[in-house]
Nucleic acid binder design. Structure first.
Lengths: 169, 169
DNA sequence: CTCCTGTATCTTGATATCAAGATATACAAC
DNA sequence: GTTGTATATCTTGATATCAAGATACAGGAG
């Protein structure tokens, strides 16, 4: 009996007129995301990094050389607002992990470029982070893990979660 | 090709030495949770409510008469820290949706009780909220939804997500 | 060229959250 | 009883986030 199952039982007592079956899926989805995030935060904290910092560094890192994205591209990749992106860049710039480079052709655009220090910080923790995620998933059986992944792929499709459009050149 | 699949492709180019398969599950899990949360927030906003406000009201509502939990019980049910609970109670008290009642036997304890207004607010939006969740899930096929739910149940079990212990009397 | 509209980023103000510590109370051991 | 330890809530300070608006620039229409 997990937490969400218990909540659903309570509702069947208190509001038998409501069909709370969506909670079985969506309630657990958000709870599991929160629980896993706590574990992930813990691993990054051991390496003097916040999860949001790794998100930025990893977004730049995986974009390939020259490890540079515009502020707007970061907005869309990380699903955050532009104000938050500004704040994140500023803090990472202060740590020396990224630098701002104004676009020469379009002066509105800011290119955020990973520094060598930033790349090192990202690469140094990436393996540990993935091992942690692997260990979490290893707690489930193979069959269930496949079901979960298949279901999430279908959900991503259903919600139209496409990657942010590449910049037009 | 969803966003996470695209990210994994990028990693296979940039860091072919890393096995990023955990992203297929955990990356999608957190992304889907965030996307769904946005839709849920929108529905509550249309009814002049924040998601966290509904969380509190619903926690109290489903506990049954007299619709009362202690601050600590709310901490554990909602997976938030005690400072956040204090803040939430204060704001909901100002809206007249809950009231604080000091325990007579143990003066440290605060009972948070749903008012009639609070119960009405919760019940009024609950149906719409569930319809919204149902509509989201209806975007996937039945088979995939079952797989997803089964996988999440297994994950909750694996992470030991038990309901918060009932108070000892 | 000038105007207009759209776009990219940043700023501002409000707020939700957490970590750490403060306060008040209960309870057990002596 | 007194003392010490554990518990429940609240306070404080820092910070991450968002919404809305400001600023700066681009690019097309005339």
């Amino acid at each position: 009996m997990d937490a969400v199952a218990s909540f659903m039982d309570q509702w069947s007592q208190e509001r038998p007129d409501l069909d709370v079956t969506p909670m079985a899926t969506i309630g657990r989805l958000s709870r599991m995301a929160a629980l896993i995030q706590q574990r992930i935060d813990g691993v990054f904290a051991q390496h003097d990094l916040q999860s949001w910092e790794f998100d930025v560094l990893a977004s730049l890192r995986r974009s390939g050389k020259p490890y540079s994205l515009t502020a707007g591209e970061l907005d869309r990749t990380m699903m955050i607002t532009s104000g938050t992106t500004t704040h994140r860049i500023t803090r990472l710039e202060a740590r020396g992990f990224v630098e701002r480079v104004r676009d020469e052709d379009d002066r509105r655009v800011v290119h955020v470029r990973l520094t060598d220090d930033g790349r090192r910080a990202c690469d140094a923790v990436h393996g540990v982070h993935l091992d942690n995620e692997r260990a979490i998933l290893a707690l489930m059986g193979d069959e269930d893990r496949v079901k979960l992944t298949d279901g999430l792929v279908a959900l991503a499709q259903a919600l139209g979660d496409v990657p942010p459009a590449a910049p037009r050149r």
